[in-house]
């Protein structure tokens, strides 16, 4: 039989309420509290229960996680389940933190459950399966049932369904689904429009996600002393594309020395971006990567220095994760050369 380990707080372990919230982590054999309900539905034996006070986890997070991971070091388990935490904020965050750490350290599936009001949902829903739970322990049985049925699929190696079907919060991972109803895009579109026109509720298949903003970096105080680097996602590369950057869905980037040229020559550089007509950029690559203008400003003393290389990749279809990785790799190079600012062009 497969093995599971369960995490709960001091309250659900029956140790006490608020007065015992500083309770230090401990591990006990077998199932305790909510795990009893869970074990009756789970296709696995709950071999151990980890207990920790919510306040202890909240104020000594690193230590608590370290201690708990050390408990688990010599245990064999196939799945790790925490909670359900309902609306309890500190408990929810604790479940999220410990699940995340267990997943990273032991690479086993981790599951938890929280009410949508729980702040832990926003913090952790992208990192793990957080099931939509009730507001209070009165819903314990229902919540545990949802977790167990999903956990059983994982334990049995069965295919799991979409977020709405299984009952977990969307993790920001989207994938194609063939609708069982066979309803076509045309049918769904017209139906949705008729609902919208008649003021009836409808559900968009592509909810507009919240935007992620970055704080504005401190501006350059004195441009005439600044070292600047230039970059493009317009796919400008030497004609033989030495880094084999893909013309769409790029996973690679290149940097090319421009310390000894005044501009990018046609026939020496070209674009490999497949998303547009390349004729103009092939005839004059400076229309995408304006090396000529930058060199002129440099000579005129508008800014202090130009980084020796320009950086290039292709933007079309590139995943945010890949773009982030490439940016991080590039940033290392920029920091090595003490680059102060970046001018970037995109197509």
């Amino acid at each position: 039989m497969k093995k599971a380990i369960h995490y709960i707080n001091q309250f659900f372990a029956g140790i006490g309420g608020e007065d015992t919230a500083d309770y230090k982590p401990e591990i006990r054999e077998g199932a305790i509290g909510p795990a009893l309900a869970l074990s009756s539905m789970l296709n696995a034996e709950i071999t151990h229960t980890v207990i920790c006070g919510d306040n202890y986890m909240g104020s000594n997070t690193d230590e608590a996680i370290k201690e708990i991971l050390s408990f688990l070091e010599d245990k064999e388990f196939d799945i790790f389940i925490a909670g359900p935490a309902f609306q309890a904020g500190r408990y929810g965050v604790a479940c999220g933190n410990i699940c995340k750490a267990v997943k990273e350290r032991f690479n086993v599936p981790v599951l938890t459950s929280m009410n949508e009001e729980n702040p832990g949902v926003e913090m952790f829903k992208k990192d793990m399966y957080v099931f939509k739970g009730g507001k209070s322990a009165a819903k314990l049985k229902d919540d545990v049932k949802v977790i167990a049925s999903f956990a059983n699929k994982i334990l049995n190696g069965e295919k799991t369904g979409s977020a709405d079907k299984e009952g977990f919060f969307p993790r920001g991972i989207r994938a194609q689904v063939w609708l069982e109803s066979g309803k076509t895009g045309a049918e769904r579109g017209v139906e949705m429009l008729i609902k919208k026109l008649n003021g009836l509720p409808f559900e968009s298949e592509l909810p507009i996600p919240k935007q992620d903003r970055v704080p504005v970096a401190t501006p350059i105080a004195d441009l005439s002393k600044a070292k600047i680097a230039i970059m493009t996602t317009g796919g400008i590369v030497p004609v033989n594309n030495p880094d084999r950057i893909q013309s769409a869905s790029a996973t690679r980037w290149g940097r090319y020395d421009i310390s000894n040229v005044d501009k990018l020559e046609s026939g020496v550089y070209k674009t490999i971006h497949a998303g547009f007509d390349p004729a103009a950029a092939d005839a004059d690559p400076n229309v995408i990567m304006p090396v000529d203008a930058m060199k002129t400003y440099l000579k005129e003393g508008k800014f202090g220095a130009l980084h020796d290389y320009f950086y290039s990749t292709v933007g079309t279809g590139t995943t945010q994760a890949e773009a982030m990785r490439m940016a991080k790799e590039i940033i290392i190079k920029l920091e090595e050369d003490k680059v102060d600012a970046v001018i970037m062009t995109s197509t």
Partner: peptide
């Protein structure tokens, strides 16, 4: 099948 044939949609997983 954007012309409207598509039995596919996108769901969160």
């Amino acid at each position: 099948m954007i012309a409207g044939w598509s039995p596919k949609t996108m769901k969160e997983f």
